[in-house]
């Protein structure tokens, strides 16, 4: 296998974050009201816990699969990580401005919270996708 542990873990993150937060937004956005409800907070809590469990299981499986290799990041992994975080920071900045716009133009806390959450999710997806891109393309 020519993918490093870090690259494979980014695939786990990309797929699990897309699936779990995709499910959350698909369930919650159609029920949008002025404020967040207790049910929405409960669903969010359950899905965050699920995401943590998926990541732990994913890491354990990948470490077991690469049993003869050290999963400690080397200089290439660190550079790819930095490039991913740089791209993600742009997405996060855009999301913060979108959250400020939502605070200005909408009633209650629902849209502000969800625009900010969406920007966090999108920045994570951008980070993982950027890292996978650089691992595969090279630099």
């Amino acid at each position: 296998m020519n993918n490093s542990f870090k690259e494979n873990f980014q695939w786990v993150t990309l797929i699990s974050v897309t699936a779990i937060y995709g499910y959350y937004f698909a369930k919650v956005i159609p029920t949008a009201g002025p404020d967040i409800t207790v049910d929405q907070i409960a669903l969010f809590g359950v899905l965050v816990a699920l995401l943590v469990v998926v990541h732990i299981i994913g890491a354990m499986v990948l470490i077991a699969a690469a049993r003869f290799q050290d999963p400690t990041p080397d200089e290439r992994d660190k550079l790819v990580n930095l490039m991913g975080r740089s791209s993600a920071s742009w997405m996060l900045a855009v999301g913060i401005f979108a959250g400020m716009a939502a605070a200005w133009f909408t009633e209650g806390n629902f849209w502000v919270m969800h625009v900010l959450l969406a920007s966090l999710v999108l920045s994570q997806l951008v980070e993982s996708a950027t890292q996978i891109f650089h691992y595969r393309r090279g630099f």
Binding site: S4, E75, F139
Partner: peptide, 15 residues
Amino acid sequence: GVTRQTIYAIEKNKY
């Protein structure tokens, strides 16, 4: 002191 994947990437001129 690097991963095998990094040696592979160097050999393939990807890094």
